[in-house]
């Protein structure tokens, strides 16, 4: 405050006072303008441009904007590879989201007991968040080495060594369900994050409420089931949306873990390979738009709801 106080004299003499109402909005907008323009062009302009490409004939190195209507989308709907992608995304999403929610909630409930080493465990469960999916993918590629028997290594070897032979499996090379194994490193990476938002939610439950339930004769388990968990529903919903939209976008993890295999294909990889390896820009753009719409269906209501709540507070 002192600094602005001493500024006063020089500022007033140097610059005539503007109409305060106009300065309010106008000057603010001016500072915002570069970012607004950048986002307008790079997000919304580019989305529009992608939408335009998605209804064009463009296939090959030279742009071809001949309008073909919804042909690219229709072809996608009939494309067996895209059907695999949708199925893979569905399996991945179920394993990934449920895995994160269960582990996240479980860890949060354990940490909420008020133990001494809470900070240590919390940091430990969260550190994978700081690592790139590429690193995770490369390491887990060796952990989930599918070889068995004499050539077994990674987790399979570990299972054999400790007598858990029943768990030995072919991981991501398992026919049909391989993609579920890919969700495992994703759970490793993101369950700590789920724990963090659950823990914040648990801490927001008033202790008095639990105490009241205990006084009414509820045991610890009932307190959780009848009091705490229902109050955590909004947290679960936001975790569901954040995790769900991450799984729709999953890309680098699969690339680093398994490369470009059709068996483990997902829409984001199909878009990338068909566009930049196959030069089928029309199809690539249509996959991009399908992805965008599915993410938007999840995220827009969430944004709307969160911002409205905030405005009401």
């Amino acid at each position: 405050m002192q600094a602005t106080g001493t500024e006063r004299g020089t500022r007033l003499s140097r610059k005539p006072r503007l109409n305060p109402v106009r300065m309010k909005g106008g000057a603010g907008l001016l500072l915002l303008l570069p970012s607004i323009l950048a986002v307008l062009v790079f997000v919304y302009g580019f989305i529009g441009w992608t939408a335009r490409v998605s209804v064009s004939k463009w296939k090959g190195l030279l742009p071809d904007y001949t309008f073909v209507g919804l042909d690219n989308y229709k072809n996608l709907a009939a494309d067996p590879r895209f059907a695999i992608d949708v199925r893979n995304t569905a399996i991945f999403t179920v394993v990934f989201v449920l895995g994160c929610l269960f582990i996240g909630l479980g860890l949060a409930m354990l940490l909420d007991k008020g133990i001494r080493a809470e900070g240590f465990y919390r940091s430990l469960f969260l550190f994978p968040m700081a690592i790139s999916f590429i690193v995770t993918g490369v390491v887990w590629r060796w952990l989930m080495n599918p070889a068995v028997g004499d050539r077994a290594s990674g987790l399979n070897l570990l299972f054999e060594n400790v007598g858990l032979d029943a768990l030995v499996n072919r991981w991501h090379t398992t026919p049909t369900w391989g993609i579920a194994a890919v969700a495992l490193p994703a759970v490793w990476q993101m369950s700590g994050y789920t724990m963090a938002i659950y823990l914040a939610g648990l801490r927001a439950v008033p202790e008095g409420l639990r105490e009241a339930a205990r006084v009414d004769g509820a045991d610890e388990w009932q307190v959780y089931r009848r009091v705490v968990l229902p109050l955590l529903r909004p947290v679960t919903l936001s975790a569901l949306i954040i995790l769900g939209h991450i799984s729709l976008k999953v890309f680098d993890l699969i690339i680093a873990l398994a490369g470009k295999q059709v068996a483990l294909d997902v829409p984001s990889i199909y878009m990338w390979t068909t566009t930049f390896d196959g030069y089928f820009f029309g199809r690539g753009a249509s996959i991009g738009i399908v992805l965008l719409v599915s993410v938007a269906v999840l995220v827009i209501p969430y944004l709307w709801y969160t911002l409205r709540n905030e405005a009401e507070q």
């Binding site: 970012s35 607004i36 989305i47 829409p267 984001s268 992805l291 944004l303 709307w304 911002l307």
Partner: peptide
Amino acid sequence: PLLLFGMFIPYQAILIP
């Protein structure tokens, strides 16, 4: 909100442009 939505988009939808 328009700005915030930009945080969630799948970048495949803007990659070609």
